[in-house]
């Protein structure tokens, strides 16, 4: 297949003519493949896709998301996961199979306003997303700094093999929990570290499509890099078509594979050095909020 040059596109732009397979955010129109989003068009072995630069979060099965409990019924909680649908967390998932609405008090486990990290177990066109917290490091997030970013920027924030987020964590002595839905929670003891991490995250969001971002983040965080861990050599071998949804032309992350997300637990230690488990996440992102709500920040302390 003929390789096409990566380029900026807007909806309706003709990307390429010929018999190519339309992948993400691309439709066929006559003999052309046409972009449906503002973003960066690229072609791989499998077909042609557009990495979007804006849009709301569309839930996908197996995504790790951070949500806020907004309501509860007798059998489940409703969770706002920053998507166009509210998600449901069944009470049985938390209490076990012998849950009884008459005996068990759901309010003792999760109350309205709590933040949770959860995995989407099911979602399709006909049903709202269903969540689970039955996994290691899932559950309630007890405290932390809450930051909302555009979901399309999540892969960029994570960086290639988690490089960006590791840089931020190490430089600021914090733990950063990232949901695929664009919600980020930063925990740590040092208030200066927290605000610096928040600043770096904002910077990544705002400048995600620019080149040399990792270097600028390091400058912001005052990080000396003796040996740059991420050389452009790692134009990854793994699925280049599937991987990068992020906007930047920056080579470092343009093909960045699956971001590692550090999940949080309800019992993580205050120092932020609690158990870390790397979760592989598919970062192909369909849509997301645009920058509009990016500045929204709130503290969640318990």
């Amino acid at each position: 297949m003929q390789e096409i040059k990566r380029r900026y596109v807007i909806p309706g732009d003709k990307i390429i003519e010929g018999n190519y397979k339309p992948l993400m955010n691309v439709v066929k129109s006559g003999n052309y493949l046409v972009s449906t989003r503002v973003g960066i068009a690229e072609a791989g072995k499998d077909g042609v896709k557009v990495i979007p630069l804006s849009g709301v979060y569309i839930p996908r099965v197996n995504d790790l998301v951070i949500g806020k409990i907004i309501d509860r019924s007798s059998l489940s909680w409703d969770v706002d996961i920053n998507a166009c649908f509210f998600a449901h967390l069944p009470a049985q998932d938390v209490f076990g199979r012998d849950f009884s609405p008459a005996k068990d008090d759901m309010g003792r486990q999760l109350s309205i306003g709590d933040l949770i990290i959860a995995r989407i177990v099911s979602f399709d066109r006909t049903r709202d997303p269903m969540l689970t917290v039955q996994d290691k490091d899932l559950g309630k997030i007890p405290y932390g700094e809450f930051i909302k970013i555009s979901p399309t920027r999540v892969p960029r924030l994570i960086g290639k093999r988690g490089s960006m987020i590791q840089t931020i964590e190490q430089a600021t002595q914090t733990r950063v929990i990232i949901g695929q839905n664009g919600i980020v929670v930063v925990t740590g003891r040092d208030p200066d570290g927290l605000s610096l991490a928040a600043k770096a995250i904002k910077m990544v969001e705002e400048e995600s499509h620019t080149t040399n971002l990792t270097q600028r983040v390091k400058t912001l965080l005052n990080v000396q890099d003796p040996v740059d861990p991420e050389q452009p050599e790692s134009m990854n071998a793994s699925s280049s078509t599937e991987s990068s949804t992020q906007p930047q032309p920056d080579i470092e992350s343009s093909t960045q594979p699956q971001p590692d997300i550090e999940s949080s637990t309800s019992n993580n230690s205050k120092s932020g050095s609690g158990s870390k488990e790397k979760h592989r996440n598919d970062n192909s992102e369909e849509s997301s909020n645009n920058d509009s709500n990016s500045d929204q920040k709130e503290k969640n302390q318990e």
Binding site: N25, V38, S287
Partner: peptide, 11 residues
């Protein structure tokens, strides 16, 4: 609408 990231065939 394009800024909101909604899938569009054209402007």
């Amino acid at each position: 609408l394009a800024d909101a990231g909604i899938n569009m065939r054209d402007l």
